[in-house]
Design a protein around this nucleic acid. Structure first.
Lengths: 228, 228
DNA sequence: TTGTAATTGACCGACGGTCGGTCAACTTAC
DNA sequence: GTAAGTTGACCGACCGTCGGTCAATTACAA
């Protein structure tokens, strides 16, 4: 094979991107190192020049994926100003809901990420989310308590609990969300669950009922029912 | 090898038990089908007479593991009577905390189950928990609202959210719990988190603060600090 | 005795990972 | 300026192991 030398960082990112695309397309287990190197157009040995193992690649991929999203989200929320509730919404919008720009992306994302074969990837991402996202929420919750909007005892812990809830709840909601795409009349089930979740968060944050409005129900309805 | 014919169900359970022990010892990925059949003392083909695949084994294992615990817990709580709070405590005790009978068991359980390699096993168990445990909590929460102790809007959803919280939170708490065994002075961190979690649940259930008392703090302290 | 179901183990292709070695670009020295 | 030395990106044949298959064999109930 023709020998092509690239800047190492460029090569590393190339491998990361290729791996991500293949994981999304085929699933983690189904994507062999062979396949990745073939797609990139390098020898198998080169892969192991950049990563200790396939799992090491997974870790670096998760880091790389989240870093991008998180720094973006942090800056955006920092800039937008506003009270804690607005910032809270902003964070959710930027960190959690960025996949929902359009139906196609969302379906793909959920289909891919919540496939059983992709749990190594999902697990790694969750781990990194737990570590890196919760300080952002702590900040907002702290602001909220200072503003008197939130009534929370332990800020750090509440933030962690909220994140754990979110990740755990995503696990539960994923299959239901997919089922709505196939069976639009099930949307009422989804909406009921979304509302209940929002209510639960309001209670945990000690905020007045109905003020949080993380989710725009009409928007969700439109989102699922267009061309449905 | 000597040919030994057994009652199929007996053989199936034998394989399940062996697989469970090996998964605990070595991790899911590191436990090969070969290893399982060698340990049981049968040919590899026999394994595939009982299970379609290694993943099928995992599914059956998760079913088998939970069924036992759940029916036990259900009957116990049914029998014990009492108000919703007491039953709620009973459920947690029986379903979640059964692993905590002694230090050794708990350490082993957490060390094993929350290893990265065992994520497939954990994930399967969580899936089944989500499906099968939440009706038990729904029942108790319904009783609680009828008794006027709990103030919950949507019973089913609240139960699901509570379970998702619990599972997500366990994911977060596992490494911290392990660290306490190695570093007993970190227990204050753990206790703070446990209290915060309890408070969050009280808020979600709409119960008066401090009444739930799922966790006996003194008991936890003793548990971690004896022989520490 | 015959049919059914449990059991066997040789066998398969694909996998993650290794390793001895290549080679172009860069550094150093005279 | 150029030759010798050094680096590290890159190569690809190779290894042991894995999950899984299947035709043959055995045990046993009907």
């Amino acid at each position: 094979m023709a020998r092509v030398v690239k800047d190492p960082e460029e090569r590393r990112i190339e491998l990361l991107k290729t791996a991500r695309d293949l994981f999304y397309e085929l699933g983690y287990e189904q994507t062999s190192v062979q396949k990745i190197t073939e797609t990139v157009g390098i020898a198998k040995g080169t892969f192991y020049h950049y990563f200790h193992s396939k799992e090491d690649l997974l870790g670096q991929l998760a880091d790389w994926q989240t870093e991008e999203v998180l720094t973006m989200a942090e800056h955006k929320v920092e800039k937008m100003g506003g009270n804690a509730v607005e910032k809270f919404r902003g964070l959710i919008e930027n960190i959690i809901s960025w996949k929902t720009e359009n139906r196609e992306m969302m379906i793909t994302y959920i289909r891919v990420m919540f496939r059983d074969e992709n749990f190594p990837l999902r697990n790694k991402l969750n781990q990194i989310y737990r570590e890196k996202v919760y300080p952002l929420f702590s900040k907002v919750i702290r602001q909220g308590t200072e503003e008197g909007i939130f009534k929370v005892k332990d800020i750090e812990e509440s933030s962690e609990i909220f994140l754990s809830m979110l990740l755990g709840w995503a696990e539960r909601l994923a299959p239901i969300t997919l089922s709505v795409f196939e069976n639009p009349e099930r949307i009422s089930i989804l909406i009921k669950k979304v509302k209940a979740f929002e209510n639960a968060i309001e209670r945990i944050l000690g905020v007045k009922e109905g003020t949080l409005k993380i989710y725009d129900i009409d928007k969700i309805k439109k989102f699922f029912l267009e061309e449905g």
